[in-house]
Design a protein around this nucleic acid. Structure first.
Length: 266
DNA sequence: CGCAGCGCCTGAAGGC
DNA sequence: TGCCTTCAGGCGCTGC
C-alpha cells in the first residue's frame, strides 16, 4: 500500500534513469484506468516529482504524466519482453529501457494532463500541503483540521489537511502524538504534536525505504524495512510500547484502525 | 458543498 | 482437500 514514503522512495530511484528520456512507445491494459498511458508517446521527461501519493512526471509542452499506485502498484524498469500478467501499463524510452506499472488489483491509475491541471483527479486537485513543506506550520495544520468535524484519522486519509498519509502512517502518527483516531476536534497543541509525529514517522519511513507488508517493492525490487519499525499499525493484541496496555483494533469509517485505548485520548 | 455509501479489483486467509 | 466467503483499502463517483 504505497503511501508518501513508498512513492518518494520510488521517485528518488527512477528520477535519474528517466530524466531527459523520450517516450517512443507505450502500452496499457484494457482497463480504462490505464488508457492514458499512450497519450504521452513522443514526449520527453523533464522532471520526476511527487504530490502526496501521486507520481508526477513532468514532460515537454507543458504536459504531465500522473501515476497513482493504488494499493498494490509498483513501478520498475526493465529491458526486453515480459510475461508478467499484472503489468497494466508500460512506456518504452529512446534508450530501449521500459518503465512498467505492475498493479495486481488495478486500484492504481494513470492520467495525462496539462501541467498543474488536476481537475480530472479530484483528490489531487484538492490535495493538502506536503508534510515536509517548510512553510507548513502547525497553526496551518490546526486550521485545516478545524474545517471539518470528521474523525481526525478520516481527515488525514482524505488527503486534504495534509498530503500523502495512508492507513499505516496515520495509525503510527496518531499513536506517537497520543491522539485518539476517532477525535472530532483536535486542540492546537495536539495538532502541533500530530504534525511533528507525522513528519517523524514519514521521515523514518523514507529512511527505511518504505513499509513492505505484502506487495510493495522499491524500484529495484527490494522490500522496504519500515515494517520492522512500526509501533502501532498491525500490532493489535500486542502491548503498547509506552504504557503496556493491549493495543486494540476498531473500524472507523470503514478503515481498520489500531490504537492504544489508554495513551491516545479523544 | 460536504460527505456517506458504494464499486472497483485480486490474492490471502479463514470457515466448514 | 477444496470450495466458498470475507477481508484488505485508496480513491472516484453518485446522490442526498
Amino acid at each position: 500500500m504505497p503511501e508518501l514514503t513508498e512513492v518518494e522512495t520510488i521517485r528518488r530511484q527512477i528520477a535519474p534513469a528517466l530524466a531527459g528520456r523520450r517516450i517512443v512507445d507505450a502500452w496499457h491494459a484494457p482497463n480504462p484506468k490505464f488508457v492514458a498511458a499512450r497519450q504521452v508517446v513522443g514526449r520527453t521527461v523533464q522532471s520526476v516529482g511527487r504530490r502526496g501519493k501521486y507520481l508526477v512526471i513532468g514532460l515537454d509542452q507543458e504536459r504531465e504524466l500522473i501515476v497513482h499506485l493504488g494499493m498494490t502498484g509498483v513501478v520498475r524498469l526493465r529491458t526486453g519482453a515480459t510475461i508478467d500478467p499484472y503489468v497494466r501499463a508500460s512506456w518504452t524510452f529512446d534508450d530501449d529501457t521500459i518503465l512498467e506499472l505492475r498493479d495486481i488489483r488495478q486500484f492504481g491509475r494513470v492520467a495525462s494532463v496539462a501541467s498543474g491541471d488536476y481537475r480530472t483527479l479530484p483528490t489531487l486537485h484538492a490535495l493538502g500541503p506536503d508534510p515536509f513543506d517548510p512553510a507548513l506550520t502547525s497553526r496551518d495544520f490546526y486550521r485545516a483540521l478545524r474545517k471539518s468535524t470528521q474523525r481526525v484519522k478520516t481527515q488525514l486519509l482524505s488527503q486534504r489537511p495534509i498530503a500523502g498519509v495512508g492507513n499505516i502512517y496515520a495509525d503510527e502518527a496518531l499513536w506517537r502524538a497520543r491522539v485518539h483516531p476517532a477525535s472530532r476536534r483536535v486542540s492546537q497543541p495536539r495538532a502541533h504534536e500530530l504534525l511533528g509525529a507525522l513528519r517523524t514517522v514519514l521521515a523514518q519511513g523514507i529512511d527505511n525505504g518504505g513499509t513492505t507488508l505484502r506487495d510493495y517493492r522499491t524500484f529495484t525490487g527490494e522490500t522496504g524495512s519500515n515494517q520492522h519499525a512500526l509501533d502501532c499499525y498491525g500490532r493489535h493484541g500486542q502491548p503498547c510500547g509506552r504504557c503496556g496496555t493491549t493495543l486494540v483494533r476498531k473500524v472507523y469509517d470503514g478503515r481498520g484502525t489500531t490504537f492504544c485505548p489508554v495513551c491516545q485520548r479523544v
